[in-house]
Design a protein around this nucleic acid. Structure first.
Length: 579
RNA sequence: GGGCACGUAGCCAAGCUCGGAUAUGGCACAGGCCUCCUAAGCCUGGGAUCAGGGGUUCGAAUCCCCUCGUGCCCGCCA
């Protein structure tokens, strides 16, 4: 029998079964007993007997006593403790199951069986008007981690970037590139297309507001573009491609690869948007005002002035949200489930989108992850105003600080090696700090916090991983191999068992995070593993232990290493073999 | 004015979806641990009206209502 993907699952099922039977034995029906996690170190699962007190007209502790007599099994003991029934899994049985699963699956420990479900994770989708800045840095970081997590949960994931190449912003940029010379704008220090181009976007935006002639020109250009004039379309395409080349270099450096790009203009020019519009117009909610069509959202929970969801301008051209409906219909043709990562400024749009999809007969809705912006102490970041911290600069700073640390701690290493470690650690700290916080919490950007290298940070977990790697490396050099899962009985120290129990939870954390489309539980989990490993490291010498114990501890070390590497990996954070 | 979020020690976060055991970590602070597998580590200590008020419940950080504060939105922009 191959080891379980989730070593905890058979035990959980067993406990649930036995608890259900015990509840039935007391003559209670109609209550589905719910298992809970007991406080750390107390038990593996718990049941609070209060829930049955009213029905049985008995005190919870008495009920717990009786339940415990009927519940439990050979491998799981049921112990009444006050008003609770605590279930404790047999240490050796659990350890063996965890080691078997983690060692057999290795780099894939944590991954769940394939579901065949196709999921498109749309993330980043930043307007191609300038370099990525920290204000929206959560988008690629959360999106990429989410894609990895959903993939680990067994689904077939494709990531997609929706390129907003319609509308005034890209036209303004294109105009700027055609009419402003590089000498007329501030010089960019960075030799990347996005940095090279953004100054002219800024200048063009400024002229657009100040100069009516420029505004008129841009307006006309926009009309030609939306009217489908090939030469303008060609120019815009070229502009956007150039900008994206620069932006992609940033993503690549962050370790983020996007599977495919969906261009907004494509949906306009291939007729998808018009077809979607026609369908929407058939809705009774669709009304006209001054030549412009809108959906009347009254009574659908959208309040006040937002009740009119405009689909077209009065000249008949479509609006962003309308095109987004067409895009989502297309995505639903290609996938079973959609995940979108959007800034919180899109909350209303998300609601409108959901309603519109329903009106044209699409019963599914995208799972939208909204994230709050990363603001500067002095306010919101903005490409147009230039009040920004660029991700490129943040990465530079992260690597530089990490290199200073490595140099201090590992002076014996070669320059090349130091640089490699600094890259992994610096970037890891950056991604971890953003991925580790609940998406909807607003963040005020501070350098020290963004690049924290100790405590609950990526380097903390990476360090534990490097320690584990170091032990395994030395063992190999001395000719010792990790033992079989059968040696589980040799692991009996409290901190060994605590580590086993922590490792056991990775598949559960993956399942839950994927279902909830939440990333930060993985970060918390990685810290827990590191913590448990550090305590094991302190209390249980591995290499000097007698052969069988050494084999068992090496196996546990390897299992912990997998859990660390894989949980970090799901966040897009690399785990170095040495640091 | 209306809507959606968020508010947990000096600071930053977890727990809230699914109510249950002394509210969990980190930073900072005070003290301790490197003849022993990497001290980016470990141990000990102090520090919390879980924004405030009301309600539901045997039981509320968790659910409901109100108030306050913060972020975001309310455009024939994207």
């Amino acid at each position: 029998m191959p080891p379980e993907a989730d070593p905890l699952e058979p035990f959980r099922a067993e406990v649930e079964r036995s608890l259900r039977a015990a509840v039935a034995a007391l003559g209670v029906d109609g209550i589905e007993p719910k298992l809970a996690r007991a406080p750390q170190g107390m038990a593996d699962f718990a049941f609070a007997a209060h829930a049955l007190a009213a029905k049985l007209r008995q005190a919870p502790p008495a009920i717990a006593q009786q339940l415990a007599q009927h519940a439990g099994s050979e491998r799981v003991r049921a112990v009444p403790e006050g008003p609770y029934v605590n279930f404790r899994i047999d240490d050796a049985a659990l350890t063996e199951a965890v080691l078997a699963s983690a060692l057999a699956r290795g780099e894939h420990y944590g991954d769940l069986p394939k579901t065949g479900q196709r999921v498109i994770v749309e993330h980043t989708s930043a307007n191609p008007t300038g370099p990525f800045h920290v204000g929206r840095a959560r988008n690629p970081i959360l999106g990429d981690a989410l894609a990895r997590i959903v993939r680990a949960a067994g689904h077939d994931v494709t990531t997609e970037y929706y390129v907003n190449d319609m509308g005034k912003q890209v036209i303004t940029l294109t105009w700027g590139l055609q009419h402003l010379r590089p000498e007329d704008v501030p010089h960019a220090e960075r030799d990347k297309p996005d940095h090279q181009l953004v100054a002219r976007y800024r200048k063009a935006s400024e002229l657009l507001e100040r100069d009516p002639v420029v505004a008129q020109t841009i307006q006309e250009m926009l009309q030609r573009y939306e009217g489908g004039e090939p030469s303008t379309a060609q120019q815009v395409k070229q502009t956007v491609e150039t900008m994206l080349r620069g932006m992609n270099a940033t993503l690549e450096r962050m370790g983020i690869r996007i599977d495919q790009y969906a261009w907004e203009s494509r949906y306009v020019f291939n007729g998808d948007v018009d077809r979607t519009l026609e369908k929407l117009k058939q809705s009774e909610r669709c009304k006209e005002e001054d030549g412009a069509f809108y959906l009347d959202l009254e009574g659908l929970g959208v309040a006040g002035k937002s009740q009119k969801f405009f689909l077209t301008r009065k000249d008949g051209t479509t609006l962003y949200t309308t095109r987004d409906v067409a895009y989502h219909l297309d995505k639903f043709r290609r996938a079973d489930r959609l995940v979108d990562v959007l800034g919180e400024d899109h909350k209303l749009v998300g609601q409108q989108l959901g309603i519109a999809l329903g009106l044209v007969g699409e019963t599914r809705k995208p799972d939208i992850v909204f994230y709050a912006f990363v603001n500067l102490p002095e306010g919101r970041m903005s490409t147009r105003s230039g009040r920004v911290v660029y991700i490129d600069d943040l990465m530079d700073e992260a690597e530089e600080r990490a290199r200073a640390e490595v140099t201090k701690r590992r002076p014996e290493l070669g320059e090349e090696e130091k640089r490699a470690i600094a890259r992994i650690v610096g970037l890891g700290a950056l991604r971890f700090n953003i991925a580790g916080v609940q998406a909807e919490k607003a963040i005020t950007f501070k350098w020290e916090e963004a690049l924290d290298f100790e405590g609950a940070s990526a380097p903390f977990a990476q360090y534990s991983h490097a320690r584990a790697a170091s032990i395994l490396r030395k063992a190999r050099e001395e000719g010792h191999a990790p033992g079989e899962a059968k040696l589980a009985g040799k692991l009996a120290q409290p901190n060994e068992l605590a580590l086993v129990r922590t490792i056991a939870r990775l598949p559960s954390v993956v399942r839950q995070s994927a279902a909830d489309t939440r990333v930060h539980p993985l970060a918390g989990y990685a810290i827990e593993v590191a913590n448990a490993f550090n305590q094991f490291y302190r209390d249980s010498p591995v290499l000097q232990a007698e052969p069988e114990v050494r084999g068992a501890r090496l196996a546990l070390t390897l299992a912990a290493k997998h859990a660390l590497r894989n949980s970090l990996g799901l966040l897009g954070v690399e785990a170095p073999e040495s640091m």
